[in-house]
Design a protein around this nucleic acid. Structure first.
Lengths: 247, 247
DNA sequence: CGCCTTATTGATCTACCTCAAAGTCTGTGG
DNA sequence: CCACAGACTTTGAGGTAGATCAATAAGGCG
């Protein structure tokens, strides 16, 4: 898949060249012709390695970069003035982190690596300049942003569903769809985040997440082993996700 | 304020000219020089009147237009496959409706007028073409989109807060901030939506909204008369919005 | 004025939170 | 390779915030 070489070795040109990246068709380079790709490559720091727990950017700090997940996974979380944390979203390979801070210039949340992974880092200002030169980059931006907004809507809808197991079911359906969107087609998912992160994201208690998993297993929607989840019946999982309120 | 003439009269040129619009500095024209403004004016249907309950666009229908609220207010809502409705967001003067559907071309929710009002309608495709000609329009798009995404994050965070009165308090704080953002500075707000819409938006029961209002009145944060709410103590309302979970 | 929709208030019930404890996984060092 | 410590996860028992049901009150409109 990805050639992550020992750091003592000279980095392979191939790895840092966006032209060769498996994600390029879904990434910003898709908005630039091959001839001009070098212009983009010039403003990206490609393949930065992160260890689990590493911070990409901090809430309330100056936001300077957009990140593209290449391998691994990340989360963003907001801390309220009174110290309560809430996990906003999770990010999978091919997804962009930091979109919401582009205008204000201040990060509205903290981004943290959930596991060891690799991401590319793009400077906002330089990207803005490039966008003015290449109109197709602008199209790509609108496409990415409107998709992010549509996803945010779905996540928001899910957070207001009454039944806890429906929320978890919807979460799994969305997560599975996002995995599949970037070519990792399968009904088996590895959840890289801990139960507490899922609980925070869905606005439920950790214990309720556990019990909801048990319910989804009992009803034959899924089976699981720790963080490894297998969707047995996607149809049934959809039904469970759309239960009438308080059933 | 706005001159909404009797429909039997010839529409005043002034009204439909974006150059004269009080919102233009926050609207798409801000991304175009005065010399080129006519190009934009050519793709907008300005000042369309809506009556309370009128539908701007329907979920799952082909999405062709972006709307700018000029007066009045609107809501967007999603209907799940099993017929449960959820109010996604409310839209105030100066705000854009339909951003999330720009890429897919399919509306992911239904937009409805909450009261009599006026909005302008812009064709996506023509706007896309214009954006390629005017790079500053692209900057405006990114600015608008990232702000919308940041707001969606805040709304999502709010929906996962435990305490019902905290959710309502946060809702009022956000709503007030948005009203003020477009120059309607005041601590008195008129909520154009019914309690049921607020309840749906916050993921609570209508009765809980009523009781939460009562609590906010008892604690001296607000006073109210029907849908007319007056913020008495913004500091206290912030505190109420950030209560520790379950108390 | 009377009808109908919307809003509030009261009483009961329940899903989920909290607290508590046991069980499982992960990694580290002997 | 195994033993242990620590974090993570699950399961159990009881309490509570908010849902639901029910009834009254207040607007809105013909």
């Amino acid at each position: 898949m990805y050639l992550i070489k020992d750091s003592r070795m000279a980095p392979k040109k191939m790895i840092s060249d966006c032209a060769e990246c498996v994600l390029s068709k879904d990434c910003i380079p898709s908005g630039i012709s091959t001839d001009n790709l070098h212009r983009f490559v010039g403003i990206v720091s490609t393949n930065i390695s992160y260890k689990a727990g590493d911070v990409l950017f901090e809430q309330n700090a100056k936001a300077q970069h957009l990140f593209v997940v290449k391998t691994g996974s990340f989360k963003t979380q907001t801390t309220t003035p009174h110290g309560i944390e809430h996990v906003n979203n999770f990010f999978l390979p091919g997804e962009l982190i930091g979109l919401e801070s582009a205008s204000s210039g201040i990060s509205c949340n903290t981004a943290i690596a959930l596991e060891d992974g690799v991401a590319c880092k793009i400077n906002y200002q330089q990207l803005t300049k490039l966008r003015q030169e290449f109109p197709s980059l602008s199209d790509f931006a609108v496409k990415i942003y409107s998709a992010a907004l549509a996803l945010a809507n779905e996540i928001q809808n899910n957070a207001t569903i009454q039944c806890a197991s429906s929320r978890l079911a919807t979460f799994l359906v969305l997560y599975n769809r996002r995995l599949n969107a970037h070519g990792m087609q399968s009904l088996g998912l590895h959840l890289p985040m801990c139960r507490e992160d899922i609980a925070s994201h869905l606005g439920l208690a950790v214990e309720t997440i556990s019990r909801s998993f048990s319910k989804l297993i009992t009803t034959g929607c899924i089976k699981k082993d720790g963080r490894r989840v297998q969707i047995l019946n996607l149809e049934k999982l959809h039904d469970e996700a759309n239960l009438p309120p308080r059933k």
